[in-house]
Design a protein around this nucleic acid. Structure first.
Lengths: 235, 235
DNA sequence: GCGGTCCATCTTGTATTCAAGACTGAATAC
DNA sequence: GTATTCAGTCTTGAATACAAGATGGACCGC
């Protein structure tokens, strides 16, 4: 049976451009052309176009007919709506987990990561953000509805930009550990109502943090996040 | 400001191929090549590829590296999951509508279409299915979360294939009119709980009907739906 | 100096060409 | 007769070529 061996060029370009957007190397408002990117990545326009069109459909980019591309600005209303939707999905997943009779192996596994003493916790913002993503993703996957999980994953991709900023405040890291641990115990104890309330407030808390984020904060964050690789601070 | 005047070729091909899938002219399991489609539509492979890749990402098609495309079979488990997700979203939307203080103009408008005597109701299955889609779409849009509405729209696209079959039974058309009317009155009366229960059972009912659908039924439906244009019964 | 017009350049959208390898079928060894 | 090999055809993925028109700047009139 034929099988794509490695990722196609288009796929690679997609990941790289998306990475640049998330690392604030491609800032909102930046204008660029297909040829420009093609030359930068050393490929032809074809795979670049594939990648850009995909990012366009996902809401990150915009194309002007015969007049170039540009990175769309952060839409905070949209991010807020994404958080609301995410809350809806995760609450439903948690309720389902509590009520379903089946296996909670995945939840047990998560306990190993999140239920640990303060001393053994991660503190690197980037890493915690990644673990946090995984936690919520696994939670939703465990509920068993693949379509729900797929939509949740899409949302995760779209809020990642601001989500990372949430963990730049150390207090939020601690709170995350506490709440994740508590939530896991509630689910394992089949406490449907309490678990639902907790996951709702947990996400809503993040949502509130995101609401505080202004463009100024994003700019500051860009400095922090790109410090390791300052030569690429595209402008 | 530059603006795409008409739909691009890629967009048109996308719509046409999707239409063929929905009209059972491109049956699940059908294998085809990009060149084949390009010749059939009188365009080059480029826009065809764009369209096919989009349909692939939406879960309708599959591509085998250097070995052609094929239409994915109906995945009834997936359809069931989509219906569950849809229920989740619509119940949330209806609850929000009932509780929010604002304008319910959109709901008032819907009443003109659905609250009407038996004699003035539509009976054409195709048309009723279209109206039904619009009803649920408007309901969700009225709730105000654009991301929720976007995801709902995506789901709508994906369940359309089987949804139409629901209305081939006349009884289901009548029930739809009754339930839609009742739901609108409940929302306008701000009866949150009753409205939520009704919309949930309304969608669940469709879901149950879909579960009854077998591949045999799909085949029969294909006969009915393609009768007007029998020459295109692709095999 | 200022506003308008026109032309060269640039950009996307589409078509065509090229490359690598998967599939098919006939020929061959046994 | 059956399995295997090998070459030719076919298919996708990527690169290149072409078409239509949007953009921006120079030039002109005043």
């Amino acid at each position: 049976m034929a099988q794509q061996i490695a990722n196609s060029l288009a796929e690679q370009i997609y990941a790289r451009v998306k990475g640049e957007i998330f690392d604030f190397q491609l800032l909102p408002g930046t204008r660029f052309t297909e040829t420009e990117l093609a030359e930068r990545y050393g490929v032809s326009r074809t795979p670049v176009r594939d990648a850009l069109y995909r990012l366009k459909r996902e809401g990150f980019l915009e194309v002007a007919f015969r007049s170039g591309w540009n990175v769309l600005p952060f839409d905070f209303v949209r991010l807020d709506e994404l958080y609301s939707l995410r809350t809806l999905l995760e609450v439903a997943a948690v309720e389902h987990l509590c009520q379903a009779s089946g296996k909670l192996d995945a939840i047990e596994q998560l306990r190993g990561i999140w239920c640990r003493p303060v001393a053994k916790r991660e503190s690197d913002a980037r890493l915690v953000a990644e673990l946090d993503e995984q936690f919520h993703q696994r939670l939703v996957e465990a509920a068993g509805n693949r379509e729900l999980a797929r939509v949740h994953a899409e949302i995760t991709e779209k809020i990642r930009v601001v989500r990372r900023l949430d963990f730049l405040v150390e207090k939020r890291v601690d709170a995350t550990y506490e709440e994740h641990g508590k939530l896991l115990r509630l689910i394992l104890g089949r406490k449907t109502t309490e678990a639902a309330i907790l996951v709702r407030s947990h996400i809503t808390q993040s949502q509130k943090e995101v609401r505080k984020i202004t463009l100024h904060m994003l700019h500051e964050a860009r400095e922090v996040l790109t410090r390791r690789d300052p030569k690429r601070a595209a402008g």
